[in-house]
Amino acid sequence: MPKTRLDDIDRKIIDALQIDGRMTAQQLADKVGLSASPCARRVRLMEDMGVITSYTAVIDQDLVDLPISVFASIKLERQRENELERFSAAITRWPEVVDCYLMTGQRDYLLRIVVRDLHAYERFLKEKLTRLEGVASIESSFALTQIKRSNRLPLEA
């Protein structure tokens, strides 16, 4: 998909929605200096273009009893297209994997896995990740403290 040209008002709308996706159309319009109707039209257009993909709630992991974040670096036996696709398809089915990136460098994938405790991670490893055909190695690192988390992109106006 080609890059979308956003003007300053579009960027203000996106920035405001990244901070509070639940604000009303009128609140958003007031914040960006438009009337409600043209503001809503711009939001709809950005949704249609795929710039705005969804709206969601950010949940505190600890308060829902999922305090463990594990970062797993995965190396595949081969990096052929069908092996990459097979791995990606499996990962998308596993709810424990909340982030997955295809990487450059020594490892092929970096995953963030969220679980209740070490036993749950061990179960995930034994029952899912290590059974996936084509995985050559797995390196796990456990997050001690989350310093920053953001879904807000650094848009410049």
Rank of each mutant, 00 (worst) to 15 (best):
P67F: 06
M49H: 14
C39W: 04
A40M: 11
L45E: 13
I52F: 04
D60W: 03
A40D: 05
A57Y: 08
V70D: 00
G50S: 08
D48G: 07
S69C: 09
L76D: 03
T56Q: 12
G50C: 09
V58F: 08
V51G: 07
S69K: 12
S54H: 13
S35K: 14
I68L: 08
I59F: 11
M49T: 15
Q61A: 13
G50P: 02
E47T: 10
M49F: 09
L66W: 05
I74V: 15
G50W: 12
T56A: 15
P67L: 04
R44C: 11
S54D: 14
T53A: 13
R78P: 01
G33C: 09
R42E: 14
D62W: 09
E47D: 11
I59S: 01
R42A: 09
L63N: 04
Q61S: 15
R41K: 14
V64S: 09
T53P: 02
M49A: 15
M46Q: 04
S35I: 05
I68Y: 01
R42P: 07
E47H: 07
Q79K: 15
I68V: 11
I68C: 00
K75P: 00
I74K: 00
A57I: 04
V43I: 08
G33M: 09
E47Q: 15
R42H: 13
L66C: 09
D62L: 07
I52V: 04
K31Y: 03
L45V: 12
V51E: 01
V58I: 14
D60S: 12
K75W: 11
G50Y: 10
P38F: 08
P67S: 02
C39G: 11
M49Q: 15
R41Y: 13
V70P: 00
K75G: 04
Y55I: 02
D62C: 01
I74G: 00
I74S: 00
S69T: 14
S35D: 11
K75N: 13
S35N: 05
V43T: 08
V32W: 05
A57V: 03
R78C: 05
E47N: 08
F71M: 07
V51H: 04
A40W: 11
L76P: 06
M49L: 14
D62N: 14
S54M: 06
T53L: 10
E77F: 13
V70S: 00
R44I: 13
C39D: 04
M49R: 14
R42Q: 09
M46E: 07
V51W: 03
S37Q: 10
M46W: 06
T56M: 10
V58Y: 10
L66I: 07
A36S: 08
A72P: 00
V70A: 01
A72N: 01
L63F: 10
F71R: 01
V64D: 07
G50F: 12
A57D: 07
E47L: 09
D30C: 00
D48P: 02
D65Y: 12
D60T: 06
R44A: 13
V32A: 05
R42W: 12
C39T: 10
T53Y: 04
I59E: 04
Q79Y: 09
T53D: 08
R42T: 13
A36Y: 03
G50D: 03
R42D: 08
A40T: 14
I68Q: 04
R41M: 14
F71H: 01
P38K: 09
G33E: 09
L34G: 06
A36K: 15
A72R: 00
D65L: 08
